[in-house]
Design a protein around this nucleic acid. Sequence first.
DNA 1: CTGAAAGCGCTAACAG
DNA 2: CTGTTAGCGCTTTCAG
Lengths: 352, 352
Amino acid sequence: MMTTQMTDRRRKKARNAAVRLQDVAELAGVSVKTVSNVVRDQPNVRDETRKRVQRAIDELGYVPNVTARRLATGRTGMVELALPDIRAPYYAELADRMFDEAKKHGLRLLIEQTRGDLDSERGTLVSPQQGLVDGIIFEPVSMSTTQIALLQSRTPIVMLGDVTPPMSVDHVGVDNVAAAQTATTHLVERGCRRIAYLSNQDPNLINTERQRLLGYETALRNAGREPDASLYVPVTVPDADGASRAIEDVLADGLRFDGLFCYNDMFAIGALRALRRAGLRVPDDVAIVGWNDILMAQYTNPSLTTIAPDIKGLCENALTMLNSRIDGYQGIGRHVDVDYRLVVRESTAHDA
Amino acid sequence: MMTTQMTDRRRKKARNAAVRLQDVAELAGVSVKTVSNVVRDQPNVRDETRKRVQRAIDELGYVPNVTARRLATGRTGMVELALPDIRAPYYAELADRMFDEAKKHGLRLLIEQTRGDLDSERGTLVSPQQGLVDGIIFEPVSMSTTQIALLQSRTPIVMLGDVTPPMSVDHVGVDNVAAAQTATTHLVERGCRRIAYLSNQDPNLINTERQRLLGYETALRNAGREPDASLYVPVTVPDADGASRAIEDVLADGLRFDGLFCYNDMFAIGALRALRRAGLRVPDDVAIVGWNDILMAQYTNPSLTTIAPDIKGLCENALTMLNSRIDGYQGIGRHVDVDYRLVVRESTAHDA
DNA sequence: CTGAAAGCGCTAACAG
DNA sequence: CTGTTAGCGCTTTCAG
């Protein structure tokens, strides 16, 4: 009998087949249940038994089969982070933090790129392959919270960034109005007279966008100035290149400004290039403020003054909220604003 | 009888429980097997039956349970991309391409950050949680191919970048020697007299490193110059900041050079900052060549001349090779070199 | 404290 | 062309 078992295990090893809970149980002379208890560090196992089982585990090199465990528990232990484009430094840095945070929560993170268009954003939410992940952390670009709330699926969701009314879905972000105000005020105080705002095409579609615009305008009004619509510079393709072109275009059209508040650092980097090509100096001719404080913001020439959201806090909160939903919390949507600060660098330095 | 089934389904819906293959089978009045066949688009189903089943599927909103399928087939449909740090633009861009390529192969990509240290690189390979992924694409930084070959686990692996002898494991990369030679020769032809090489600390540890150094030296020799060890500038912490500091240090020590070949674009970006702070102009005082052609290389000031590897080709080859291993291919290690080209930008422009 | 047995939802022979 | 049945490897009552 014993011989037969040994042979079985040998054959397995030869075939390179995985060692199962049962193989360990047989070697240790206990039931599967006991081995399972040992593996999962559950109580109710005599110390001596535990040791014996552990030896068997080591000898056989047993590793639990995640898939089987999932089928039995109904949990995948994976959460999805849906973001537009991992190549955008901010998202890469966000993902990096989220990886760490997920690990702390005993979860594995799956990145899904939405490309920022409506259809694939919807697709991500509508069919999160049945049971592939336990929950989703979602950074929307094109979808409004309202739309998202409508197609609430079985899978728990936490939203990043946005903060608009239908509060049925959890989300965590920064106070966009306040931060945009801080950024703009910084330009005002630095002495900029004409402050342009470089941002996405249609502020009515995206809520985040609308809020930052509001902050920008509020700051101007507080300084006793009336916002000037001609100073609103829309970017068609939301990357550095699109921003660069947008600035080139308005400069060619004769627009003049000495301060520029950018929707994000990549826009700022694009603007930097366009201004340089136009022979304008930063910060002497135009002072610039970005948003996100991506790593690269320290390496641009000149380095970039920017709004730095507390990404770590963002991730911690998102994962904590998501976890509670996964654990069955059914309450109404919760909303958290994390800190931010203004990091001042060369792009808004005072004239030497 | 029929009534009981309906009730069951209703109850399920109420409990928000998932619809199973069997539920569909009952509604359609066929066996599970047939439904399974329809779901997986297998032949051997009469057209009429297929339609009936499809209706049932739609009505119930059935979605296959990936986990159960996995357990039954032994395939997860996921592959892991293990890289040092997703925040490094090159890796983010690589991941982006790999996501697309994986999708084409019907696979889902899981990112794993190794942080580039030996222990966690080993950890990634040694215990790829039993059955989490079908295969691994691995971009090593600290581990040598030899070490990797030794701990070959049950999970198929394809290596990225490196190209060293123990050819038992598949890998795909670029011809580092040739590309480094191209880069260096470009600096020589531009008229640089003293060309420094900014690279990782210990070229003996990392093979890629060694090869690029070889290419650099070969180019110099071909130009009739003897490589000068003092022009080898080692970077301790492998990021832009580390590179920046390394350049600052050697400049402070009085090292002078008019050409700089960098291990990667982030090093080049760090160097750019250090040179700027030292009051040296690029390319007038120092011409620079980077490696990878990250998106940002177009936005630095000045923009960066760099070696652009064919990342798409890299991803395609890696996934194809991995897939064949997953499908059971047992042959010896295969090696593919993908194309590269030199992209010339401002950092090596000729003096105006 | 430990064991036996019944699933989790799907696939894969093997019959028919 | 379709149905039956036995797993995949683990967790989990429920007994003992």
